[in-house]
Amino acid sequence: MSMRTSLFIALGVSALAGSAALAQTVVRDIERPDMPGRVVFEQQCAPCHGTGLGDDGSPTLPGTAALDAKYGGDRPGALELRSDLPAPVLRVIVRRGSGAMSGFRKGELTDEQIDQIAEYIAATAAANSGG
């Protein structure tokens, strides 16, 4: 069922109502190295943890928004900018789940694919570190 998007219409209210309270820094364009983990990330992670705007133009990628709020600026909410998620750490989070994100089964994501995501995130963070 829908919340911010379709049910706004079902409820008969403006789809943008309340967005102002949710404002956050939106990271739109970053450099993305072409490596195996990129496709896995785009398909499995980016719908929640990507960069850019959410469905209705407001910054509502849920995983990115939740991590932004959690870290309060100490770390980036967007995973592709995180340099502290090596494969062993990522495996634990992906398998166990965190917050509202349930763990992922091996039938959905193999260990090898998680490792590829970790390599991709590390490369992306390095490429966009600005240093």
């Binding site: 069922m1 829908s2 919340m3 911010r4 998007t5 949710l22 719908p47 929640c48 959410g54 469905d55 209705d56 509502t60 990628l61 849920p62 995983g63 928004a65 939740a66 709020a69 917050g99 509202a100 994100m101």
Partner: peptide, 10 residues
């Protein structure tokens, strides 16, 4: 999309 999880998470 997965935008619905915005509500549960935030």
């Amino acid at each position: 999309s997965l935008e619905i999880f915005f509500v549960g998470s935030r």
